[in-house]
Amino acid sequence: MLEARGLSVSFGAQPVLRDIDLTVAEHEFVCVVGPSGCGKTTLLRALAGLTPISSGSALFKGRPVIAPQTELAVVFQDYARALLPWRTVAGNVALALEARNIPASDHAARIAPLLAKLGLSGDGDKFPSQLSGGMQQRLQIARCLAQEPEVLLMDEPFGSLDAITRQQLQDEVARLAKEEKRTVLFITHDLEEAIYLGDRVIALARVKGNLAGRIAEIVDIALPRPRQQLATREDPRFLQYRHRLFRHLE
C-alpha cells in the first residue's frame, strides 16, 4: 500500500534520512519509533508528499507520491494549529467533505456518525478553542477520517496529551483502525506506545558521523488483539520486545 524505496532526504547539505526501505501493507498498523532528531517526522512528511525527496522514492499503491493527495491523511501532533479556529467542530469536519466535493446537503448525515465515533456528539456547534486538548485531537482525527483516506499518517498524535487521555486515545485509534480497515503509519518517540499499537515496529536511529536517520531494526509484534492497557503491557512478550528495541533509543 505504502512504500519507501531507497528514500533519502537532505535539507541543503545536511542529510536527514538515508536509504529508507519500508513497506506498509494494506490494513497494517506500522509504528515508527526513534529518538528525537532521527528523522521520524521527515519520513512521514516525505511519504505524505509534504517534504521533497532527495533520492529514492515514496510510493502509494505503486505510484510515486510527488504531492499530497486526499487518500493520504495526516494527523499532526499540534492539533490546535491544524484546526480552523473560526469553524465549529462540525465545520472543521466539513472541510474534508468540501475537499472531496460532497454536496453540502449530505454533510450533516456524514458528520454526525463521525462525531459519534470519536465521542464528540453534542459538541458539533462548539469552536475548537472550547474543547480540551484531547477533544481537539479527536476532532482532527475525525476530520482525517472524513477524508476517507486509505492511509492514516499519524505524527506523534498523542505526544502532547496527558497520560490518561493518551491511553484512551490509543485504544480508540487501535479500534477505529481495525473497524474502518485503515492502513496506519504511526510515528512516536514512545517505545511502549509503538509496541502496544503496532503490528510492526520500525526503529529508526541516527547514523553516527553524518547524523542521517536510517532503519535500525524492524520487529513484528505478535501480541493478540484487541490489546488491553494492563494485560498487554504485562505480557512477557511485550517486555521482550521492549528489551530488544530499547537499545536503539539510546
Binding site: A48, L50, A67, P68, Q69, T70, L72, A73, V74, F76, D78, R81, A82, L84, W86, R87, L95, A96, E98, A99, Q147
Partner: peptide
C-alpha cells in the same frame, strides 16, 4: 499559520479555495 497551509495542501484545495476557506477568515 504554516500548519494550516499544509492542511490546505493535504486536502488538495486550489489557491482560490485556500484564499476563501483559509486566508480570508484568518485575515478577518
Amino acid at each position: 499559520d504554516a500548519r494550516l497551509v499544509e492542511v490546505a495542501r493535504l486536502l488538495n484545495f486550489t489557491p482560490w479555495q485556500r484564499a476563501w476557506k483559509f486566508q480570508l477568515p484568518s485575515a478577518l
